[in-house]
Design a protein around this nucleic acid. Structure first.
Lengths: 108, 108
DNA sequence: ATAATAACTTACATAAAGTAACTAAACAAA
DNA sequence: TTTGTTTAGTTACTTTATGTAAGTTATTAT
């Protein structure tokens, strides 16, 4: 048996990025701070899950949540340094998708 | 609303890589052709899901399945060119994990 | 004939995600 | 003062995905 143990850091990174929507939320925030509703309408995520993901990401130090006392109150989500450090990964995925993913007309 | 539409190719790539275990299966195959049981024991995936993933990946042209008529019959899974082209993404994730993921002693 | 092994598959249980209605806070309008 | 708006969520319930463990098929060994 090829028991080449996979590095736990790598596994942890993979499990972060394999969570549904997580990569898209981060990608979306790469273009600047955004509020809940904006993120939600830019990707097809439900409020229930977006709320969950943002809490996770905040706790992992990838996203920062700022309350802006305007009226009505605005809440802005943005990437931390750790969050921005994921950019090269997302750019690689983007690059790959340009060369290897075909667009289909009738897509589920 | 910031309706910056996300590129469908990119979304498709993300949804591929966000499927649980998919990235790890590909990562595992980067080190060479492997059989079902080897993949299964190298990561914590269940047979049920591994079987499902391999079929998906084969259908997407990322993995190739070869029947080797030894005795008992051996089935080898390997990456296609498209599969290998994902390597830079996985290497970026690996790199990121080295700088940003801390190992914890007591991990779930 | 019986047993062993690899590669799955099936049936059932649990966890994650989707849906839609609801809540709280902070005003604005009537 | 009551009614309504908007944002940012939360809650209850349904559907889908994944985990678990037992079963199947094929091929060879005993």
């Amino acid at each position: 048996m090829n028991q080449s143990i996979i590095c736990p850091r790598f596994e942890k990174a993979i499990s972060l990025l394999s969570q549904r929507w997580t990569a898209l939320v981060i990608y979306q925030l790469l273009s600047g701070p955004q509020r809940f509703g904006t993120i939600q309408s830019s990707i097809a995520i439900s409020g229930r899950v977006l709320s969950e993901r943002l809490k996770d990401l905040e706790q992992q130090g990838i996203v920062k949540r700022d309350v802006i006392p305007e009226t009505p109150v605005r809440i802005e989500y943005s990437l931390t340094e750790k969050g921005f450090s994921l950019e090269p990964i997302l750019k690689e995925i983007e690059k790959w998708s340009q060369s290897w993913v075909e667009t289909e007309r009738i897509e589920k």
